Amino acid sequence: MSANILLTRIDNRLVHGQVGVTWTKSIGANLILVANDEAASNPLQQKLMSTTADSSGAGIRFFSLEKTIKIINRAADRQKIFIVVKTPEDARKLVEGGVPIREINVGNMHFSQGKKEVTKKVYVDENDIKSLLFLSNSGIDVYIEDYPGDKKFPVNENLFK
């Protein structure tokens, strides 16, 4: 029996208004799982994200990537899980660790030195591209979509040409 993971989102802001409310409600999640080593050990970050989650009516948990991999398959059937990670590398680590992810939404990946624009909100470097293509080539539905119902850009080799 595998965990009921509705969607995984890559967003370098993790949980904020748009993710906490719009995406959570749109997919019908009742648990937001923030899989991020830093957030898992940062009470202030957790407090801010919990406030956002409260307004969506969903529960929220903060786990390191390793803890997520270890316990995800112990999730109860009633838990409709929305996983949020910070980077494509984090998503890849979860998949390589056996987390049953079927769909990945690429949200915000801000510009930084050495990154190129894919869409107005998604900037990637070689490492990001490798991880995104690894995920896409693993049979996972990976796409860029800013908010529910927005134009979807499937992630594949053509996207980065």
Rank of each mutant, 00 (worst) to 15 (best):
S2F: 04
A3T: 00
L7T: 01
D11H: 14
R13M: 12
L14V: 11
T24S: 06
I27H: 03
G28L: 11
G28Q: 02
A29C: 04
N30G: 01
L31R: 07
L31E: 01
I32E: 06
V34P: 05
N36L: 07
D37V: 07
E38Y: 11
A39L: 09
N42C: 08
P43I: 05
L44R: 11
Q45C: 05
Q45P: 05
K47Q: 12
M49K: 13
M49W: 01
A53F: 03
D54H: 14
S55C: 09
S56E: 00
G57D: 01
A58E: 02
G59R: 15
G59S: 15
I60L: 00
F63Y: 13
F63W: 13
L65S: 00
T68P: 12
I69D: 11
K70V: 05
A75N: 01
D77E: 15
D77M: 13
K80D: 00
I81D: 00
V85C: 03
V85E: 03
T87W: 09
D90V: 10
D90W: 04
A91P: 10
L94Q: 09
L94R: 06
E96C: 08
G97C: 06
G98T: 14
I101C: 05
I101F: 02
R102I: 00
R102P: 02
E103L: 13
G107R: 10
G107I: 01
N108G: 14
Q113M: 14
T119V: 00
V122R: 14
V124H: 04
V124T: 03
E126M: 08
D128W: 12
I129Q: 08
K130Q: 09
L133G: 00
L133P: 00
L135G: 00
I140L: 12
D141C: 08
V142C: 11
Y147G: 10
P148F: 03
G149Q: 03
G149N: 03
K151I: 05
N156Y: 03
N158W: 10
L159E: 04
F160D: 07
K161D: 03
